[in-house]
Amino acid sequence: MADTLSIASWNINSVRARLDIVERFLTEQAPDILCLQETKAANDVFPAVAFARLGYTHQVLHGQRMYHGVAILSRVPLVEDDRLDWQANGEARHVGVRLANGMRLENVYIPAGGDIPDRALNPKFGQKLDFLERMTDWSAGLAVPTLLVGDFNIAPLESDVWSHRQLLDVVSHTPVEVAALARLQAAHGWVDLGRHFVPPPERLYTWWSYRAKDWAASDRGRRLDHMWASPALAGQAIGHRVHEECRDWGRPSDHIPLITEFRL
């Protein structure tokens, strides 16, 4: 039995359109578990066979045609699962499982929130804040070691964005979103593994807009993707890395994958 467990998370922005780069990533990095967000595929068209061929035979899917969608693909057994509707409208934005060692793994795709950071003018922004509030209530009741991963669509720290000053009024880095995320973190004492291993103010981004002609040269990144661990579980984390090279592969996602390795 292996004495470590590696878990990856990636907003792939359409798993069928980018299956080739996901397969390349799994072949090169071989995480034990991969959590995907924004799969944009209903369960019946999800490319399950392709992942099974690579050894990811344990699959828990929560898909939706054309939009949203999350999935957990694993080389190790998964037991139980849940699909929580923190959006309160039936969108496929969460799936969770329990591993054989008792640890829970929760995969979430938090709404982007539209373009205007005002609940009254932009209902999508209000839905995002409400989603976070429901997650906060859920976090407060957790009683087992849990890893929460996914696209949070919030870059909380000044060093999580390319320009704090220029993005203060841009959805994903506004003070109200950062405060909501801080309440979520405090509700369970979540440990932000990205910043545990790469302390601020060191540069750490996971997303770059498609609008840039040369994403690497302009480097206008944001850290929107996260891995948070329960305090006890965080003590078992022995490594965390982001894979910027994937942003250059084929038809890339605008997000890159992250991996955390745990000691069992």
Rank of each mutant, 00 (worst) to 15 (best):
F51R: 02
D248T: 13
L157S: 08
S14K: 11
L147E: 12
F131I: 02
A100G: 03
R183F: 07
M66V: 13
G126K: 00
I72N: 04
S74G: 07
E244H: 06
L184Y: 13
V171K: 03
L121C: 04
L157N: 11
R119D: 08
R251P: 03
A217S: 09
V149I: 15
L34H: 01
V49D: 11
V15G: 08
R98T: 15
L26Y: 13
W10R: 02
A88N: 14
N153L: 06
S230A: 12
Q64N: 10
D130W: 04
R134D: 12
A92K: 13
E244V: 05
R247P: 00
R93Y: 08
T146H: 11
S139Y: 11
R65S: 12
C35P: 05
W86K: 00
T39W: 03
N43V: 07
V60D: 08
D44P: 00
D85Y: 15
L193E: 10
V22K: 03
K40Q: 12
P257W: 06
L19H: 10
Q236V: 02
G250T: 09
V49H: 10
H240A: 14
L54E: 11
A120S: 09
S14F: 11
L142M: 13
P123E: 12
S139N: 07
A182C: 12
L121K: 11
V76I: 13
S74N: 01
F197L: 09
L129Y: 03
P156C: 04
M66W: 13
W249F: 12
I116E: 06
H196T: 15
D81P: 10
L34N: 01
A234R: 00
V49C: 02
M135F: 10
H173T: 08
H94T: 06
N43E: 10
H164V: 05
V176K: 15
R263Q: 15
A17D: 05
Q37A: 06
E202A: 14
N101E: 12
A155W: 00
R165G: 09
W215D: 02
D214H: 09
R16W: 11
D20A: 14
D151W: 09
H164A: 14
D225I: 03
R104W: 11
L132P: 08
E261S: 14
H164F: 14
A143S: 13
L258M: 13
D214I: 06
L167E: 11
S253N: 04
W215L: 04
H58Y: 15
D248S: 09
E244N: 02
D214K: 04
A8M: 07
R195H: 05
Q185G: 12
I116H: 05
D160N: 06
A237D: 14
V97T: 07
Q185V: 14
D82C: 10
A187F: 08
T260E: 05
P231D: 13
Q64S: 10
W215T: 09
A48Y: 03
I72E: 03
L61C: 07
G114T: 12
T136P: 01
W10D: 00
A180Y: 10
F51P: 00
A179K: 13
M103N: 15
C35Q: 05
A229Q: 04
